[in-house]
């Protein structure tokens, strides 16, 4: 079958290709130039080298920033799970006074600009004995990660037939048994997905972190600091690793989510 020469389709296709290139080309440039043997990023690149990855490994500040970021992400994700999952169950399955207000409050960290949340926390946390520190950063991350987990798990629960829980109780299972044997298996993938998402978002967070951090930088803040000092291809290398890491987490998340859909 021959297709007619189709001008509008061709035009839309070309526009689509341009936009896709616009989104990806800059990232490709960063990855390619992370193998740049020179200290300046110019075209054309002269050769291929792992030089900047070696520099990276010896950069103690960067390695420490990565370690701090991973710890904060781990802690923040745990807070998000421990408080977000019960909150999602309460909102999806129970009626209580103040429910509507809580629903709106939960969305605030997702809808309001991070900078406002950041300066609000910066002003308030010292008053309740939390000075500007990694602890403050952890609390800040935990707060918006509760929102992430809660909304994701809530959406799953809304699609889960509530009579499953009634059936479990009807068959003699007390509430905790129902939770572990009926609810949990059915929201498991949403929990894992939101944990991966939380982890990725925490690793990348800047606006809130920027205002709450004291001395020790997280990874994105450290990268920012390095950029301000001047462009070093070392940043290309760390950026490439960050890309690889976040894409890995995303693929893991969609793979788990996809398995759930079949």
């Amino acid at each position: 079958m021959t297709r007619k020469f189709d001008l509008p389709t061709l035009f839309v296709g070309a526009a689509a290709a341009f936009v896709l290139a616009f989104i990806y080309l800059p990232m490709v440039v960063v990855v390619v130039y992370s193998f740049n043997p020179d200290a300046v990023n110019v075209f054309p690149m002269r050769g291929f080298s792992l030089r900047w990855y070696r520099v990276l490994l010896e950069d103690e500040q960067l390695v420490s920033a990565l370690r701090i970021s991973l710890l904060i992400a781990l802690g923040g994700t745990s807070i998000g799970l421990l408080l977000g999952v019960p909150g999602a169950i309460a909102l999806a399955r129970h009626e209580f006074p103040g429910k509507r207000i809580l629903e709106r409050i939960v969305l605030l960290p997702l809808t309001l600009p991070g900078i406002v949340t950041g300066v609000a926390m910066l002003s308030f946390f010292p008053l309740i004995g939390v000075p500007v520190s990694l602890l403050a950063v952890l609390i800040g991350h935990g707060t918006f990660l509760i929102a992430i987990t809660l909304t994701q798990v809530y959406a799953r629960l809304r699609r889960l037939d509530p009579s499953l829980e009634e059936a479990s109780a009807d068959l003699g299972a007390p509430p905790l048994t129902t939770f572990f044997r009926v609810i949990l298996p059915n929201i498991k993938t949403a929990i894992i997905g939101s944990a991966l998402l939380s982890f990725t978002l925490s690793l990348d967070e800047i606006p809130v972190t920027f205002f709450l951090i004291a001395g020790d930088n997280t990874l994105p803040i450290q990268i920012w600091a390095m950029m301000r000092r001047g462009i070093s291809p070392e940043v290309n290398a760390i950026s490439t690793l960050v890309f690889a890491g976040s894409i890995g987490l995303i693929l893991l998340g969609t793979a788990l989510g996809g398995r759930d859909k079949e």
């Binding site: 037939d161 009579s163 499953l164 009634e166 059936a167 479990s168 109780a169 009807d170 068959l171 003699g172 299972a173 007390p174 009926v182 298996p185 059915n186």
Partner: peptide, 18 residues
């Protein structure tokens, strides 16, 4: 419900999908 000697056939069947 879990303390009552009755059982229910639900309209949606409510079979545990997992």
């Amino acid at each position: 419900p879990y303390k009552r000697d009755v059982n229910t056939v639900f309209q949606s069947y409510a079979l545990f999908p997992h």
